[in-house]
């Protein structure tokens, strides 16, 4: 069996050496160009779905599939997330035991800031998400952290998104800290890498597979993918965060799924949100 192990190692080394040859424009720290990525993605969708206006991609699958759009427009007349936005506002305004509140932790009292998340935090050297800072605000003020995926944290996030509707996403990748660009690159790489027993990348379904049926489901496009989160998903029967969806997708590839707010997911959110720059925040959303 020793020989077998050597052989396996041989493959690993052979594969590793390919990395150097693979370096092409936009795939390593020297060449990665987020703006070029964003334009290329928009052009990809322009040629894929020439009838869809760019601004409409915030509506996900409903921007490209007329049939399901009709049902969705009806659904939006009495939005299923309405209760959650109200509940979120209530929770947002309840003071902590120390008398402080969420408004004290965020710029502009937490109103109309959703479209600035996630952002690169230079001091901490990491990507920060809105949900992460909601919990950090709690902990800093002596409260317990909330569970990441659903319930109160999703409701508070939904309220904050609601107050930010129609603000244009403006995710920055600061030039003065190369780690920010590295985080973006990691997120981009995560999106396009095949993983799990089913050998699926995010791109398999949400880029090349956009609007093509998987059984009765239509995967949404990657452009505008994150603008409407958190979402009330009919399949869940409740509201959930973006990272809840990430974990579910990751599991669907038959990977051992990462936990919400894992660094890989935050980098992915950073990449995906940058791709949505120029589009408006329209969360919370309703999805099948």
């Amino acid at each position: 069996m020793k020989i077998i192990r050597k052989l396996a190692l041989g493959f690993a080394v052979a594969a590793a050496t390919h990395i150097t040859y693979a370096a092409d424009t936009g795939f390593d720290m020297q060449t990665v160009d987020p703006e070029a990525d964003r334009i290329a993605l928009q052009n990809y969708y322009k040629s894929r779905f020439p009838d869809t206006e760019l601004a409409d991609y915030v509506n996900g699958i409903y921007s490209v599939d007329a049939d399901s759009r009709e049902q969705w427009v009806e659904l939006e007349e009495f939005p299923p997330y309405e209760f959650d936005v109200e509940k979120g506002e209530e929770l947002f305004n309840i003071a902590f035991a120390n008398g402080k509140g969420y408004a004290d932790c965020f710029e502009n009292g937490g109103i109309g800031i959703r479209h600035k998340y996630p952002y690169w935090n230079k001091e901490e050297g990491t990507v920060k998400t809105l949900e992460q800072e909601i919990n950090e605000c709690r902990v800093k003020n002596g409260e317990e952290a909330l569970k990441w995926s659903k319930g109160p944290i999703a409701q508070i996030s939904a309220y904050m998104a609601w107050t930010s509707r129609d603000k244009v996403f403006d995710i920055q990748i600061p030039e003065d800290d190369p780690r920010a660009k590295a985080a973006y690159l990691e997120g981009k790489k995560f999106f396009y890498s095949k993983r799990g027993q089913l050998n699926l990348s995010c791109a398999n379904c949400h880029l090349q597979g956009s609007n093509i049926r998987i059984r009765a489901d239509l995967p949404g496009p990657q452009l505008g993918h994150v603008t409407h989160f958190p979402v009330f998903r009919s399949k869940w029967g409740e509201l959930g965060t973006l990272h809840r969806r990430y974990s579910g997708c990751h599991r669907d590839s038959r990977s051992d799924p990462l936990k919400p707010q894992a660094e890989e997911f935050r980098n992915l959110e950073y990449f995906q949100s940058y791709m949505s720059n120029g589009l408006v925040a329209n969360g919370p959303g309703a999805r099948k």
């Binding site: 027993q197 089913l198 050998n199 699926l200 398999n204 379904c205 090349q208 597979g209």
Partner: peptide
């Protein structure tokens, strides 16, 4: 290599 189809034999699915 980019196919969405899982390698049902190679990955022992």
């Amino acid at each position: 290599p980019l196919t969405i189809m899982p390698p049902v034999g190679k990955h022992w699915i």
